[in-house]
Computed example of a mutant assay.
Amino acid sequence: MAFLKSWLHGRVDTAIRDSVDSKDVVEAVYRELFEDYATVLRFAWFGSVLFQVAEARRQGVRPGFIPGWRGVAPEMVKRVLREELRVTKKDGKDTVTAGIDDVVSRVTGRLGTFIPAVQRQMVGDSMNVSVADVEKVNQHREQYGHPLTGFVEDAQNTKTPLGRVFSENKDLRDEFERMKRDWRESVKASPDGMLRSDDDGLDDEDLEILGKQQRALYEAEIDLGMRESMPEGTNKDFAYRNVAWARVAVGSYTCGFCLMLCSRGAIYRSDTVLSAKNRARKGGTQFEGRWNLNAYHEHCDCMMVPVFSWRKFAGKEVMDGARKLWKQFSKDVKNKNGEWGNGALTASWFSEWLKAHPEQVAEMPTFDLGKGRPRK
């Protein structure tokens, strides 16, 4: 969702320039910016939910648990503003000591890191949830409704903060309408999904709780006009959860280390698919990636995708391509011991091998971030 960061940059720029002469700059910027920023994060949650729902259906299964948006803490936003505006008091009035462009860039950068954080939190919550937690969520939604229904209704109501922001920005409205169209198409393409093949040892009560959660999504889609009727099925049929995560290389270039990790396939947990946990635990350098703050290297743009079926998932063609390259590298290491790392199957030597074989790298599909499809 690069457009969200671009839009956020514009709103931060306007808020700071409008507030720079205020007596309390931090408070003034906060008041002008907070609703817009909350909209950005809530939109990021919505987009991440729809991606996971569409991906499950594309893989031929039911989407499973849909976690709600956790919200944004006002004090967190104020803390970022205090730290990055760096105001000083002069004659009882706040003064921004740095150049406005620099301040805008810093504030946008800090606030922007929470956009992928919200998306990661959503996909993590969807998998790392107990049946007891799902039951509590079901009880809440019976009283207050499904969060997807709430998002769409708020977006269309100009009396809500979300609706006001949408009404004032055509780019957000257009993106919202595009996402709804894609959502509707995913329902048409797979109206019922496939049935579970096992129950993970769940008892009848657990199956009823998880089945109720899945039906709540279908009910929300019916309320929003996305589908006409409730699919048929037992509680066991509806109680589906993703089984693992895969790391998918994005873009035309990926380093050898990341391709090596991608080639391993759907073997990761949500907390290990993108994050270098061991390095962080040992106090090593933490790098900021495109999607997380504890990446394997600076500016890493590899994605995490939920895997519901081992045979078909978003980016599988990319994973297969990476695996093919790694296998050929391994074969060359064995056949030409001494030329490629003295027989060492390491990421550094894999990177050197990739540079020496551009024709094979060119055959590997790349991942289309916009559509979740591979392309040549």
Rank of each mutant, 00 (worst) to 15 (best):
E288W: 03
D368R: 12
A362C: 01
W310I: 13
P365F: 00
L369I: 15
S348G: 00
R178C: 03
S348Y: 02
L354N: 06
R290P: 00
Q52H: 07
L345H: 11
V187S: 02
L224H: 10
D21S: 10
A344Y: 01
K331N: 09
K316T: 02
L4F: 01
L162M: 10
V187P: 01
Q360V: 07
R11P: 00
V118Y: 02
E352T: 10
D94C: 12
D200Q: 13
M76D: 14
L325W: 05
R164G: 07
K327P: 00
V29A: 02
E208D: 10
M1K: 01
R281P: 00
L50D: 00
T39N: 04
D102F: 14
N157A: 12
G68W: 01
Q59L: 04
G71I: 04
I16P: 00
H297F: 01
V318T: 09
Y240G: 14
S130R: 01
G64F: 09
F367G: 03
F166R: 06
D237E: 11
G211R: 01
Y296H: 04
Q328Y: 14
K78Q: 13
A189M: 10
S6D: 15
A344S: 00
F65R: 12
L261R: 11
F34K: 06
V137R: 12
F238I: 10
V134D: 03
V305G: 03
D91K: 07
A276Q: 03
R323W: 15
Y296Q: 01
V318Y: 06
N128E: 07
K331E: 13
R178E: 11
L4E: 05
R70A: 14
V137T: 14
N242I: 13
D198G: 11
A216I: 02
I222L: 04
V12M: 06
F151Q: 06
S186Q: 12
R311G: 13
A356L: 02
G60Q: 06
E135T: 07
P306V: 03
V25L: 04
S126R: 04
L41P: 00
P116S: 07
S330R: 14
W183C: 04
G284T: 01
L325E: 07
V307M: 04
A2M: 05
K78H: 08
N278G: 13
A246S: 13
A132K: 09
V53M: 04
K331I: 08
G124S: 06
E219S: 10
V107W: 04
I66Q: 09
S309K: 12
Y30D: 02
L224P: 09
E35C: 00
G289Y: 02
T254N: 14
R11S: 02
D204A: 14
V305R: 03
D320E: 08
K23H: 08
K331G: 12
K355T: 09
V96L: 06
I115T: 00
F329S: 06
I222M: 07
S190M: 09
D94V: 14
M364S: 09
G341C: 01
R58W: 12
S197W: 08
V243T: 15
P231E: 08
A295E: 02
C262G: 03
M230Q: 12
G283T: 05
R120G: 10
A38Q: 09
R79H: 15
W340H: 09
Q360M: 15
M127S: 11
V305T: 07
